[in-house]
Computed example of a mutant assay.
Amino acid sequence: MIGTGAGPDLPGRVLAIGAHPDDLELLCSGTLARFLDLGSAVELAVACRGDRGGSGGPDPALADRRRAEAEAAAGALGAPIRFLGFGDSDVYDSPESRARFVSLLRESRPDLVITHPPEDYHADHARVGELAGMACWLSASGGWVVGDRPPLGRPPVLVYMDTIAAVGFEPAHYVDISSAIDRKRRMLACHASQTSREDGGIHALAELMEVQSRLRGFQCGARFAEAFRPAPLWGRIRPGGLLP
């Protein structure tokens, strides 16, 4: 299925949850830009601090730098951003972790949540996606008391974004991001700590983004595209066209 434009079923509020600074820019920022263009409210959230994402050994200042880069990228998109504050590779299912995600959803109150699929390459990605899926359900449960925010009226829709390098991901929906590709490039360029690394081709993020966006575009007949798949979880599925 290829997204073609606005429709009556597009969500009013969209929350994208990425594991690390730069994940959302790589995998779904073009679609978030399209949502904004079509009138949806968009919010970003980053679970991990990015504190272990350097190439030169431990760097106490890296987490602060990467947060500033993520804030700049969100500014380039024109959307607010939240940070959950987990350390890299410190994301695990626990009552405290669930509470952080539930609080995020109850504060953001999204109709649609976009996050990582379970088959992505990094354990943080898979765990963030799993916690986001649980939080979609728990955030609408009166049995979960977290802070003073009331439960959501119903669980948000949950949609998985592509994997890094499109490895092992079978899309169900493509979004044409040709009109938003320059914004996607500007957002990724904000992450200079990652895009300027010279420690091997695996970290050539700007090239990876271009190739993956063109690959998904080739698959659906667009110049550039992003790929998605609704999560097959009861209570978090809706009929209709929920993506642009």
Results as ranks from 00 to 15, higher is better:
residue 46 V to N: 14
residue 196 S to T: 13
residue 102 V to F: 08
residue 116 H to W: 03
residue 14 V to S: 07
residue 224 F to D: 12
residue 4 T to W: 10
residue 102 V to T: 09
residue 160 Y to H: 14
residue 23 D to A: 12
residue 224 F to I: 13
residue 58 P to Y: 14
residue 232 P to G: 05
residue 39 G to A: 12
residue 136 C to D: 14
residue 75 G to Q: 07
residue 230 P to H: 06
residue 16 A to T: 11
residue 36 L to P: 00
residue 65 R to C: 02
residue 190 C to A: 15
residue 63 A to H: 12
residue 139 S to L: 05
residue 70 A to P: 02
residue 76 A to M: 01
residue 24 L to W: 08
residue 137 W to H: 12
residue 65 R to L: 12
residue 37 D to S: 05
residue 97 S to H: 03
residue 185 R to N: 12
residue 99 A to P: 04
residue 4 T to L: 13
residue 177 I to N: 10
residue 77 L to A: 03
residue 232 P to K: 07
residue 38 L to N: 02
residue 205 L to H: 15
residue 99 A to M: 10
residue 229 R to D: 00
residue 235 G to T: 04
residue 202 I to R: 15
residue 60 P to I: 04
residue 226 E to F: 05
residue 138 L to G: 06
residue 200 G to V: 02
residue 11 P to R: 03
residue 138 L to T: 05
residue 83 F to M: 08
residue 150 P to S: 13
residue 48 C to V: 01
residue 54 G to V: 09
residue 58 P to H: 14
residue 111 D to N: 01
residue 186 R to L: 06
residue 160 Y to V: 08
residue 244 P to I: 01
residue 227 A to Q: 10
residue 129 G to D: 07
residue 182 D to M: 07
residue 119 E to W: 00
residue 178 S to L: 04
residue 171 P to Q: 11
residue 98 R to I: 04
residue 131 L to K: 00
residue 226 E to P: 02
residue 28 C to G: 11
residue 209 M to W: 00
residue 133 G to Q: 06
residue 98 R to Y: 06
residue 8 P to K: 09
residue 144 W to P: 00
residue 179 S to P: 01
residue 54 G to A: 10
residue 145 V to I: 11
residue 227 A to R: 11
residue 118 P to D: 06
residue 138 L to C: 05
residue 26 L to V: 00
residue 162 D to Y: 06
residue 166 A to Y: 06
residue 193 S to Y: 13
residue 37 D to C: 00
residue 63 A to Y: 11
residue 178 S to T: 15
residue 69 E to H: 05
residue 138 L to P: 01
residue 213 S to D: 09
residue 104 L to A: 09
residue 23 D to R: 09
residue 151 P to G: 05
residue 33 A to L: 04
residue 210 E to Y: 11
